[in-house]
Design a protein around this nucleic acid. Structure first.
Lengths: 222, 222, 222, 222
DNA sequence: AATGAATGAGACTTCATTCAT
DNA sequence: TATGAATGAAGTCTCATTCAT
């Protein structure tokens, strides 16, 4: 069996096992056995348990980001639609590849420096995709004075606000959004009837509309 | 040293270690050494590694819920103000007790049945506090027709919408909110100038205002 | 509570625990708790776990030997009757003080030098009692030409045989007898209806009569 | 080294160590070291300390029973000759494999349920071999009215007695005999000049002849 | 390319024993 | 006389990792 294929097959199994047991509770023994090969092969191909986990991490992260990007790209030019499509793709991905998500997710602490860095990098990649869309959304929403898909009253000082809302804010919103989406995967698990699209819709309504209102000057104060 | 004091001291150390390394990668040896006592004491007081972790979990969950509840209770009757106060307290707590939060929220999937159950229960307790305030907010906001602190146009079908937005939705919003808050603790770490109250304010603006809009019928659709 | 009484009370408990769990599986903790005192008291009175076990061993061995001797002494001058009485007392003792017997018995290997020596000494004491009675029995049986309680034909060379049958043979028979009795305690446990006296009777018939026959020249050869 | 060979080698060492120290006082560490391998190998091959002990138990019991059976089988049809041969083999075996015998017979009461059961089963197997020969002996001795190798007067009530002497009695005699044999291994140790066959001869004379007498109605009574 | 055999290191846990009061 | 608090040492077991074939 050619090297690359074997490698992928091992990673397939490893993702399942790591997702089920967590990094530390997983044993290379079990992964090798489930992959139908001997342990030395695992070490020959992936170097170490850590290397194996990193490979899993990178592959699944790439897949997730790709799913998000493809969906966003295919959704036309409007940033909010691209965001909607990307988030939808995210929820679809998590629903369909639960193991991948579990491996990417909640393995943050307790791992070696290298792994923690890879996790952080994966999260950063997702975050930057989202932040970019949000930045575009903010710009468009304040630049051309039109947010498609919703009626609203123009605020007089929108240009002013838009200046204030810079990259930092896009990053803030991105963090909130990704965190919310992340946490909602738990909710999704407990509400199997809900479609990924429905969940995305609710989330967009909550966050996007709220954000737009803020841009419009509807500030809430305690 | 009296028994109870020792116990708390051990738990103090254990929370730090578990947060830093995760459950499996933590060793009772290290915890004992950092606590300045011998391993057998740890076992005498907390029974087992699992017992020790459970004790950490319970104490930190209780502390977080208490902080949230106290702040909310002290903020008067308006649900949105209580939510604001509770969230503020949450951010303060997480900022000041990052380890506690990590132990409560970032434990991977590699835990024993008993521990996994306790983790789930702790998370559920936090989530249920938040969901409860949101539920109240939804009810008040639709019941008396007035959301203080923001002007708006009454929608004719607000009662109808309120009926649709039930406990499930409050739970949805709670998940989104807690997830967003969690993720924003990362953002907070990278923006040291920002006060917890400022962060809460932004988050409230984003989520609460958005939620209110939805109640008002301003639905966003792709 | 006076010292001696406490000591006996501790030993009482210890015999029960050692019998139930065996030496190594018994913990001083459990013994102290069952005795209703704290562990340091055990060490104050009995020095160490080994000291505690030795005390148990010596007390129970003394009791068993005393029971044997008393019964034998009270049974009149005939050696065979004294042997019968002693063996009966042995079976009665084992039946009534199972724990004592377990502690004395089957703890031979796996114990420290000192304990092994004490066990050996106890066994030697019993053995010497038995051997002495058997020696007397042989002498009487060959000396006065009459074994009461059974008819037989005199052999012409009985004096000669008796000379051959010396102390070594008495010791041989004693070993066989004690071993048989020892093993029969297992049998007794599985046949609760059988009285100690009945068991002794069977054993005497088997061994004593056989021995007498040998003295009479009825040699079995393959 | 091939797997099976290693296993036997480990068991060889383990029997020695268990015999010397007893189950609890033996450490897997020591066994591994004496076997010249590392601890993980022991666990790989025998699963656990308990598994290791069970393996020892089974192998040694099988060996002893085989030695007994082979000798008995090779000694012709007469039960007493078969018993003689079997007992001889037993003494030879114990003399040559003292450790095996200690593992089989001198394990204290501190063993786990599973081990205790296996020990009991092993003892039962040995005991049942002996009892079976004795039963045959009783039957033949009462059935055809002739016990070869010894003259005697026929008793009128032999059939009656034989009815009374059932399996229970064979078991009683077996216990006495095995116990005596066991104890005589100590005697044997202190009298190195004595051959196993000589010891067996004395024992047979004592027990077999006595038993036959009882069958003949020569009852001893106190 | 592939593996059966092997291990160093370290994990959790328990226990006999002692100190300070 | 009595004990709550504390520990050094050791035991069973698992795992990531490598060597010889």
């Amino acid at each position: 069996m050619p090297r690359h294929e074997r490698e992928q097959q091992i990673i397939d199994v490893a993702v399942r096992v790591f997702a089920k047991r967590g990094y530390h509770a997983s044993s290379v023994d079990e992964i090798a056995e489930l992959a139908g090969i001997s342990k030395p092969m695992v070490y020959l191909y992936l170097d170490s348990k850590e290397g194996l986990f990193l490979a899993c991490l990178r592959r699944e992260a790439a897949r997730l980001v790709a799913a998000f990007q493809e969906a966003a790209r295919g959704a036309g030019p409007a940033p909010e639609l691209r965001l909607y499509a990307g988030l939808s793709a995210f929820f679809v991905f998590v629903a369909e590849h639960r193991d991948s998500w579990v491996v990417l997710h909640r393995q943050a602490s307790e791992l070696s420096e290298a792994i923690a860095a890879a996790v952080a990098e994966a999260r950063r990649a997702v975050m930057s995709e989202v932040a970019s869309l949000i930045r575009d959304g903010i710009r468009e929403s304040t630049g051309d004075g039109a947010i498609p898909g919703a009626d609203r009253a123009d605020g007089a000082d929108r240009g002013h606000r838009a200046a204030q809302l810079g990259d930092e804010d896009a990053d803030f919103v991105a963090h909130a959004l990704v965190g919310a989406a992340d946490s909602l995967t738990d909710w999704m698990e407990r509400h199997p009837g809900q479609s990924p699209e429905g969940i995305t819709l609710r989330l967009m309504n909550m966050v996007w509309v709220g954000m737009r209102d803020v841009l419009d000057g509807k500030v809430w104060l305690p």
